[in-house]
Simulated scan of single mutants.
Amino acid sequence: MPASLSARRARFRAVLQGPDCRHPASVFDPLSARIAEDLGFELGMVAGSTASLAVLGAPDLVVLTLSELAEQVRRMARASALPLLVDADHGYGNALSVMRTVQELEGAGAAGLTIEDTALPAPFGGQGGAALLPLEEGLGKLRAAMAARQDPSLVIAARTGAFALEPEAAALARVRAYSEAGADAVFLTGITRLEPLRAVRDATALPVLGFFGALDAAALGALGVRVALQGHQPMLAAIGAVRDTLAALRAGTPPPR
């Protein structure tokens, strides 16, 4: 294990063990990772949606393959020392697939990754909308992820959208179960108020990560949130700038001299 990768993972763990909530940079390619590092971001987030756009030029329909994601992470880790938290979706299949996912992303240089309990891809004939795996299947995937890692400093976060899909009591039961199974952190979506986070704080002492809308970072930090995403504005801005520039050139606007 190159010392530089262990050092990046140690830096990520220092964020998780600290007292404050940090906003990661949404990064999607080597150049964006280098820019985020130069600007002093403590952490970069590689989302499935932005990775799909960067690699395939397509929306996040769970058609990006593990090898494509791992290769993109490898390029980013080679170009920058920014610790990368990677959205590993559902682990690209069952528990055995999750083990392969962890091996590939660890080898690519990820500092941490999330494994979620959403039923992906959506089954044929479904009624639409997200659905969760049974809790025991989610636990099986999490345990497989932890068994597969070689570097114990690699962060494995259990991700769940249960707060948007189940009653709060059921969602909290998932948080407790993933905590007791040995996850390093929990990554939560579907929470836009502080009250559920107070209940999460009572359910687990693990660091909390996730997307919490416009909630104040200081208030989030007081409730154990250590990483709060702010969305993926950098890629949207980059797409807009490229389109506007090409449109101007196509329309005959001369480039600056």
Rank of each mutant, 00 (worst) to 15 (best):
H23N: 08
H23M: 15
H23S: 14
H23K: 10
P24A: 02
P24V: 00
A25E: 05
A25I: 02
A25P: 05
A25S: 12
S26V: 04
S26K: 02
S26I: 02
S26N: 10
V27F: 02
V27R: 00
V27C: 11
V27I: 12
V27A: 06
V27M: 07
V27Q: 01
V27D: 00
F28D: 10
F28T: 04
F28M: 12
D29C: 11
D29A: 06
D29P: 08
D29N: 11
D29F: 09
P30A: 12
P30Q: 10
P30G: 14
L31E: 04
L31K: 01
L31S: 03
S32Q: 03
S32T: 12
S32W: 03
S32V: 11
A33H: 05
A33T: 08
A33L: 08
R34E: 09
R34S: 01
I35C: 10
I35F: 06
I35P: 00
I35T: 13
I35N: 06
I35W: 08
I35L: 11
A36K: 07
A36I: 13
A36G: 09
E37T: 05
E37D: 13
E37C: 12
D38K: 07
D38T: 12
D38Q: 14
L39K: 06
L39E: 15
L39A: 14
G40C: 13
G40E: 10
G40L: 08
G40M: 11
G40V: 09
F41N: 05
F41W: 15
F41H: 09
E42I: 08
E42W: 04
E42V: 07
E42Y: 14
E42H: 14
E42L: 07
L43F: 13
L43D: 09
L43M: 15
L43Y: 12
G44H: 06
G44L: 05
G44N: 07
G44W: 03
G44T: 10
G44A: 09
M45E: 01
M45C: 05
M45H: 10
V46F: 03
V46I: 14
V46L: 14
A47W: 05
A47I: 02
A47C: 10
A47R: 04
A47P: 06
G48V: 03
G48N: 03
G48R: 03
S49L: 10
S49Y: 15
S49Q: 11
A51L: 06
A51T: 09
S52V: 04
S52H: 00
S52Y: 02
S52R: 03
S52G: 04
L53S: 01
A54R: 09
A54D: 13
A54C: 06
A54I: 04
A54F: 06
V55R: 10
V55G: 05
L56G: 05
G57N: 14
G57D: 07
G57S: 13
G57V: 01
G57P: 01
A58F: 07
A58C: 07
A58M: 13
A58H: 15
A58D: 11
